[in-house]
């Protein structure tokens, strides 16, 4: 738990500052929207956290979001594929992409950066190919399906028009709880953390490291696919050229903010969720607070990520030197 103190501190400070600077920030509507955005980005960030824990990287997330996010309405609306079949295709495709990444990385020993960089280029290109660069969307149809993206659940005593918990939040909750259990309570989670720190030692201890790494890439691609579905269900309209552009970087940034080390072996799910929330609050703050010029958005986000990582490192150093001292006594 110590690992998330740094990021939790930064998040609290930014949250309180924003609330002070903008009276609109704490309104029910704004909170509801923030929860929604955090949910969407949180899911893909949790996915990439698994890969980062194995000391890998996945740059193809944004393009998978594009492929799945444009592919689903394309299948349903343009190709008039029945809903269950469309969902089956989308799920299989996501898992398959992760499998191919994992196999190329472990069995052919290709570098994750290279494999997923090619994925980044390919999936968007493929999407632009089969959609003919046309905007994809559900129009006025599939409103039941779209409830998963835009629906809200009422809080007792609050009118739903004022505030409701967005449905994707429950998905995030589910994903986060399952991911936490997997990472902390199962032997496979332990294997992932161990091989992320030292793959060789893990292999010498009889762990099937290849299989665990492949699993991590499958989880990541699956979460990106789920993210793609949610982004399109929420936004309703998507251009293959732009949907999901740079989202891998937001996901990686959130995971790193949340305490995942790109060197591998470290990370907590709750940290990643807080990291995602911090990014979203920042972007929200820049729009809501009048005196912050909106075009310096990236500068502000970059600076806060850096501050978060530095805070995290300082906390780690302090606790490390304490521990070192303790063991020498």
């Amino acid at each position: 738990m110590k690992k998330i103190y740094g990021i939790l501190g930064v998040f609290t400070v930014v949250f309180i500052l924003t609330a002070i600077m903008s009276p609109s920030f704490l309104t029910p509507y704004n909170m509801e929207r923030l929860i929604l955005r955090t949910s969407l980005f949180g899911i893909i960030s949790i996915g990439v956290a698994f890969v980062i824990i194995t000391s890998g990287i996945d740059l193809s997330i944004g393009s998978i979001i594009c492929l799945i996010g444009c592919g689903l309405p394309w299948l349903l609306v343009k190709m008039t594929v029945p809903l269950p079949l469309a969902i089956l295709i989308v799920v299989t495709l996501s898992l398959l992409i992760g499998l191919v990444h994992g196999v190329l990385i472990t069995k052919l020993k290709l570098q994750p950066f290279v494999v997923t960089l090619c994925g980044l280029l390919m999936y968007r290109g493929i999407t632009r190919g089969f959609t003919g660069d046309q905007t994809q969307g559900f129009g006025k149809f599939f409103s039941e399906l779209r409830w998963i993206g835009v629906g809200k659940v009422a809080v007792p005593g609050v009118p739903i028009d004022t505030f409701g918990i967005p449905v994707p939040f429950f998905l995030l909750l589910m994903v986060a709880i399952l991911a936490s259990i997997f990472l902390n309570r199962t032997i496979y989670g332990r294997y992932l953390l161990a091989l992320g720190c030292n793959e060789q030692a893990a292999r010498y201890s009889g762990i099937n490291t290849d299989r665990m790494i492949i699993l991590a890439y499958i989880i990541c691609a699956a979460m990106a696919g789920l993210g793609g579905v949610l982004f399109i269900l929420d936004g309703n309209s998507a251009q293959p050229v732009v949907l999901g552009n740079f989202y891998e970087l937001y996901a990686i940034a959130a995971a790193v903010l949340g305490g995942c080390s790109l060197r591998g072996g470290q990370g907590t799910i709750i940290g990643v969720v807080i990291g995602t929330a911090l990014m979203q609050v920042l972007r929200n703050m820049i729009t809501l607070v009048d005196w912050i010029p909106t075009h310096i958005e990236y500068a502000v986000i970059g600076a806060v990520i850096l501050a978060g990582v530095v805070a995290d490192e300082v906390v780690k150093r302090i606790s490390a030197s304490r521990r070192a001292a303790a063991s020498r006594l």
């Binding site: 929207r33 309209s237 729009t287």
Partner: peptide, 13 residues
């Protein structure tokens, strides 16, 4: 486009 939507939402806030 997701950002475009967020911009509209933030304006409503």
């Amino acid at each position: 486009p997701a950002r475009a939507k967020a911009n509209a939402e933030d304006t409503l806030s």
